[in-house]
Computed example of a mutant assay.
Amino acid sequence: MAERHAKLADGLRLILLLTGTRTGRTLNELAEEMGVGRRTVERMLAAIKEVCGGLEQVPTDEAQKRWRLPASTLSRVKPLTAAEAAEMDLAARRLAAEGLEERAALLRNAAEKLRAAMDARALQRAEPDVEAMLAAEGLAMRPGPRVHVPERLIATLREAILANRRIRLAYRPSRGALREHVVEPYGLLYGTRPYLLAARVDKPDAAVWRLDRVLSAEPMNEAFSPRPGFTLPALAAQSFGVWREAPHQVVLRFTGSAAVEARHWAFHPTQRFETQPDGALVLRFEAGGLDEMAYHFATWGEAVEVLEPPALRERLAALGAALVRRHGAP
């Protein structure tokens, strides 16, 4: 999912969370429900306060402050522009095209609620422009098949994540027989495939579970306390893509002709770029997931060279050799 679409969906969801509560929500509660860090919630609240106004602190005896938006606040929000309305519709279409129909439905519902809060005359003026913009902007479809995951499975997992409830997974790995596992779910990761990030009760670390290999997910009447440091942003940042393994110090060198393009990529949250005297660009980051790194950096061809670690060089070389054996001249 495009980053801007994710931010848009998160902002709308936060507004609905704040308006749908009488007792208010703490920063920690919002961060947990949104699956983001506390600082991210603070920035989003500041933006909502600037646009909507009316952000209220609910009186409470608790140490943490609780926040809410009065329902009447939405009536004072500036009307949606045609560009904003079209962007929400495009974001929902993009989510649906990626096979994430449930998330698309959530965004469509949020957009409809915001439209409902608009003045009828403003909405009437905006709708023709929205239709024109949608006709002029399309989606570049990702080629190839998309993994189908039942919407009910994602809904069940989301409910368990928000409630801190253990779930019993019937899971079939790529190799081996179907097995059941009791896991503590921490979040959902969306990439080329959707994954569950969860920790088995008998293991110290979290792992990723492909949702298309989950045959069933049964919520259990067992609550769990999140393990220290087990937040979705923290766990996801330890890996390249979704694969989790011991982190490596990764150093790559892009040629001068590829340096400009490479600098525009967000390869990893810990990345650092170093421009070289000859115009080349060195990229450094720390992460696990060598297989996924090899698959991605192979697409850069001769424009990138792996300097560290040796294991990544070996995997890229093995991948190239396998492609030559399969597709090389007889």
Rank of each mutant, 00 (worst) to 15 (best):
L232I: 14
G176E: 00
D202L: 08
L196D: 14
A198L: 07
E274W: 12
L189C: 10
R272P: 02
H264L: 09
L197Y: 10
A298L: 10
G241A: 05
R168D: 11
H268G: 06
W265P: 00
V214T: 10
V182R: 07
D205G: 12
A259Y: 04
A258L: 12
F230G: 06
A223G: 10
P228C: 05
V214Y: 11
L211H: 10
V260T: 14
R210S: 11
T299I: 02
A223W: 13
V242I: 08
E261R: 11
L196F: 13
A177M: 09
R175G: 07
E222F: 11
E180N: 09
R244V: 05
L283S: 14
G176Q: 11
P247H: 09
F267W: 09
A207I: 00
L211F: 08
A234F: 07
L189K: 04
G301I: 12
P204Q: 00
L189V: 06
M220Y: 03
R165C: 07
L211I: 05
Y186L: 06
Y171C: 00
F224S: 07
L188V: 06
T275K: 04
K203T: 00
P277R: 14
D278C: 13
F240K: 10
V214D: 09
W243S: 04
A198C: 08
G191D: 10
E274H: 14
T299Q: 03
R200I: 02
F267T: 02
E261F: 09
A262D: 08
V182E: 08
